[in-house]
Nucleic acid binder design. Structure first.
Lengths: 211, 211, 211, 211
DNA sequence: CAATAAGCGAGACGGTACGTCGTGTCTTCTT
DNA sequence: AAGAAGACACGACGTACCGTCTCGCTTATTG
């Protein structure tokens, strides 16, 4: 899957020592795990809060104590759950073009799998159904983490593989966004498509426009 | 909005003249208009079929006579509603880079408006919530129509502005998809970002990789 | 059971011809029957609206369309359902004391049965939980119908068996209310207790006070 | 209110001195008072344990340490709360009929007051909702205490005002039960009604049936 | 006088039911 | 036969209570 990571701390929690029985981190965790489990074989909107509660062995109210609605739960489940998928690294052999081709090949192989597609779609849907704020959550707090990719591009810029003033973020967008968009909409993309995309972007970056 | 167009013929229209009272095209239209009106200030899932029916002054059954579920109605409303936005053409002055810069500038100006963003999001959600088939509907039947863009690129290829073997569809993807993705996730993008994206892609296309 | 009868017309219904699909009297009936069935082996408060809906094969909303809450449903079910229990008649052999003794014996035999006790309790609870108005419903609209008893007493008064100015309603109360109250609270009463009660009341009625 | 009294000793009090912090009788009392306060303007089932706890400034668990469920709390609150209402005595002037008339007049005046009615209803509901055992609690342990009335009748029997073999308990039932039943169902009764009831019963008792 | 045990207010927990709302179908009468 | 209207079965929503279970703190009794 396109790498994502999330810190997702829904309760910034003023550190005043709460009274009464403290919230059970166990319950919190059980819910996220149950949600992930359900997301594997169910689309966002056929997931129900009641279903999550049942699967987690948790009271519905407990879910609403931690999250404001279904979108938030799913969002956090996807974001934290996929953190471990954040492992398509971008190697640095010194040859940018080769490294990106490798990365693209692996990423495509990994991403276009039933389960990851389902998760990505849930992420989008959950993000869109949440408040406007939630959309921000996707981008900023975690969402698709193109960090590794960005780092590789920055290294290339410093090292002179590509011009030092390259807008690496734009270049990264040109690589990841078509990928993500095609995952979501269900257009299956072949390795060749990916290779060509890398070629175009790398060449474009390497040969700065005459504009 | 990113140009889309839709023919949206949900009824493959058997040409046998039906018996009894013919379906009211008026009602059909009223529904689409009402839906568009609602989409302007409401997110996909807080739109209800009952709400649409009420807004349109139409019976619920009439809606289900034409479309098979909510997702389809919204989908068609978005697709046809945006058809008239499909007017960001790509001019052909002979200078590809300049033409694309112009197109990008205009598109960004047009797209990042509250109302278009809401529609784009609804499109995605409706597409995802519909059957798997629906996802295809977005891309194929209508969806984001990068037709004008593709044509301009093909013209450039034929004319030798860019290499004849250029994968124009990939290049188009590299331009439109980051745009779309940022619209739906709510990342607002400046004109500069767009210009840089065009630069990268055009240069990359123009200077075929040495790979 | 202590005789009750009810007309229970929750919808006084202005006779303007309603538009749209008319309410299904069938559904209405299915609910009442299901409720009666449940009341037989369940106490009032362990009956649930969801349970009634399931038992009746009816949507929950349909119940709430006809009745305002659980108390109202149960109330109507008990009242209408028991109408057929209104059959402990008071015979008229010309001998009031003997007739009442007979009636009392039969009523006690009939009333102190698990199932009737449960219904009577549900009636009270439903009545009390409903609005203040509901309490009125019990007395006026139906509730415990001491009609047959009253008639027998009135006949006796006209015929001179008891003084013509006898307050027959008070006398009836003195007979039925202890009976009802003991059913509700669960005090099981023997035939002897009933006989003695009849004796006291009849004698009291026959021998007008010297006050 | 119809006189009741309650000993209500929910803890049969094993006399081994418990270890640890002793239960706070203060808390116990605060709960009962809070419950009584709530009972004044709320029906049984819109009273909540959480509400009682809040009103009493007490933890919920403290309530469940003393009583086994809501019905028990309310039950005890009503029973003990009304103990102080147990003061409609039956005087003994030697004239039974007069004494009972006086008692009836005072009792009716006292009983048919909003607040007492509410309490009586709660008592019934609480009794019915409790376990079967609870129903017994009403009658036996406390409930409506017709003790004073019974005593007056027994005195009359010993003294020859009424036949020595009078079934005083039945006679008392014929007086109190109609009263109670009318309170809970909300039928407001006038003083005349009460007077007539007394007349009938006294006469009936005085003039033993010729059966 | 510490250790121990149980009570305390507070409030989260797993449950269950509530009453509302939306979906997609069905049924009435009207056009 | 299609239209507007609206009831239908179904099922999820988010809330409210129930009775239980921790928390950290307080208060007696016991060693």
């Amino acid at each position: 899957m396109v790498p994502m990571s999330a810190q997702a701390q829904p309760t910034p929690d003023r550190e005043e020592p709460r009274r009464g029985r403290p919230r059970s981190e166990t319950a919190h965790q059980k819910v996220l795990e149950a949600t992930s489990r359900l997301l594997a074989h169910t689309s966002y909107d056929s997931i129900t809060v009641e279903g999550i509660a049942a699967e987690a062995g948790v009271g519905k109210q407990t879910i609403y104590r931690w999250w404001k609605n279904k979108a938030q739960v799913v969002l956090e489940a996807v974001l934290t759950g996929s953190a471990q998928l954040d492992l398509t690294p971008v190697q640095d052999t010194g040859d940018l073009r080769r490294d990106l081709h490798t990365w693209m090949r692996e990423t495509i192989a990994e991403c276009f799998q039933e389960e990851h597609i389902a998760m990505a779609r849930s992420l989008i849907t959950a993000g869109l159904e949440g408040l406007p704020t939630t959309a921000e959550l996707i981008q900023q707090g975690g969402g698709w983490d193109s960090g590794a990719l960005l780092n590789r591009l920055r290294a290339a810029a410093e090292r002179g593989e590509i011009p030092a003033d390259t807008e690496v973020e734009v270049a990264a967008s040109a690589l990841t966004d078509p990928l993500i968009f095609h995952i979501i909409t269900g257009k299956v993309r072949t390795a060749e498509w990916g290779q060509e995309l890398v070629n175009i972007v790398i060449s474009g970056v390497a040969a700065p426009g005459d504009a």
